[in-house]
Design a protein around this nucleic acid. Structure first.
Lengths: 256, 256
DNA sequence: AAGTGGTCTAGACCACTCC
DNA sequence: GAGTGGTCTAGACCACTTC
């Protein structure tokens, strides 16, 4: 035989999608790209499970082994979550915890800090914000400032900017509608799902207003954490700049 | 048949070792433990490749698939390195770079900093050092201080403690024998291979001697990185405390 | 009971590196 | 050319969750 045997011709167009990709690449690489697309476009959400292994495998015309390999990689990458007997789900990001990893406070480091909203305004975005959030020149944003404290002691001051057409439902709901964890509120109130974030840590000096809030001296060192959170499709959702006293900062890493 | 079929009885005792483990655990978990032991004990080193897949698989009486799964995990974990057509090797740790990731200096962030040794002494260890390195009360250590700079500008001051019976060959060789990267020197001169490390970042104030070396003011904020490096078997090899000016500190993380 | 994911196997074939 | 790791398949069987 000189011609390649025809594919097992599954019911739908999944196999066609695979065939349309660059066939010099290994099957599992091409399959991962296709699955990533369906995650990024929001076709699969944390609420609805993906199709089962056998269904997916023969939709794409690949073996169960190859499919499982790819799903495993996506799980390792933190994009998916699998529960035996239940199903495979897009993972809901839980980033609210990570900031507080950095700051030690006696032994009470596990409990969730209190959160008080100090500002809540819609206003035109300045240039730093428009650039970070990739907005047009005259875009409006919802701006908020929070003070987070633990056992009465201030931990972090946070300034947060949210692009406005997108987060308009938050304005209707008002600041009281926000829980201590913001990302679940974003999802429930505005349907915005955070998929990941990048953070940058630097050290700066405390200004007058932060000094009052953080109960330290003007000019004392503070750790500044700038975070840009993105949706699964890569579009910027939230810019957040957090500041905490440097003398309570501690960060551990394991290197291998 | 009521009895379990006999194992394929491979040539050596590998299968016996697997059978001796807790058989309520999945095969791949037990196999990983066995392979980890052989890495930790130093039976396999970065210089000599592991046996091939087929050899290893039937030594342990498992399928190639199960063996590959475990090797893949160890690669992901950074313990092994595989090269097609060549072989599988224990990975040589390359931690010297990680510290400098944290400090930005214009665009010259990739080039290796210069290194000047300011101190080189054997002396009794103080309590902080004995505790970190898990030494006896009257242990001796080799102490060194290095100044690392880039393009003439000081970047980091490092204090380093090495447990002494273990690193005695370094004393013979003298400070001139050390390259800018210490870990390769440890391996070549004293046969000590670093397998991993844990680091803790905090913010402190600059003392008088550091101020002179780092060219900043006394009391200025500095970032302090405390690192404990360990051998593959878990025993502490090196304690290192590095300090750098906070105003050049920058650290990026991706969260998912 | 039905459906999900997890474990394990056996074997074919391919791509690469080394000698 | 011999030996290495990488890809992919097909199928058996198990453990678990949900209804």
């Amino acid at each position: 035989m000189t011609s390649t045997p025809p594919p097992p011709s599954p019911s739908s167009s999944g196999r066609a999608a695979l065939d349309a990709t660059d066939d010099r690449l290994p099957l599992h690489v091409r399959l991962r790209e296709l699955l990533l697309d369906r995650i990024r476009t929001g076709e699969w959400t944390p609420a609805t499970p993906l199709p089962g292994e056998i269904a997916l495998a023969d939709h794409y015309g690949v073996s169960k082994g190859t499919l499982r390999r790819v799903l495993g990689e996506l799980v390792d990458q933190g994009l998916l979550e699998r529960r035996r007997g239940d199903g495979t789900y897009v993972r809901r990001a839980r980033l609210d915890h990570s900031l507080h990893r950095f700051f030690r406070h006696g032994s009470a480091n596990d409990i969730l800090p209190d959160s008080r909203i100090l500002r809540w305004d819609s206003e035109p975005a300045d240039t730093k914000v428009t650039e970070s959030l990739e907005l047009g020149a005259d875009a409006e944003v919802l701006t908020l400032r929070r003070l987070r404290s633990r056992a009465g002691a201030p931990v972090l001051v946070e300034d947060i900017w949210l692009p406005l057409p997108r987060f308009a439902p938050l304005i209707e709901a008002g600041p009281e509608a926000l829980g201590p964890l913001l990302y679940p509120s974003y999802e429930k109130l505005a349907g915005q799902v955070v998929g990941g974030a990048s953070e940058e840590l630097t050290v700066g000096a405390c200004d007058r207003t932060d000094a009052a809030l953080l109960e330290c001296g003007v000019g004392d060192p503070v750790v500044v954490i700038e975070r840009l959170a993105r949706a699964h499709d890569g579009s910027p959702l939230e810019l957040r700049v957090s500041r905490g006293r440097a003398d309570t900062f501690r960060y551990r890493i394991e290197l291998t």
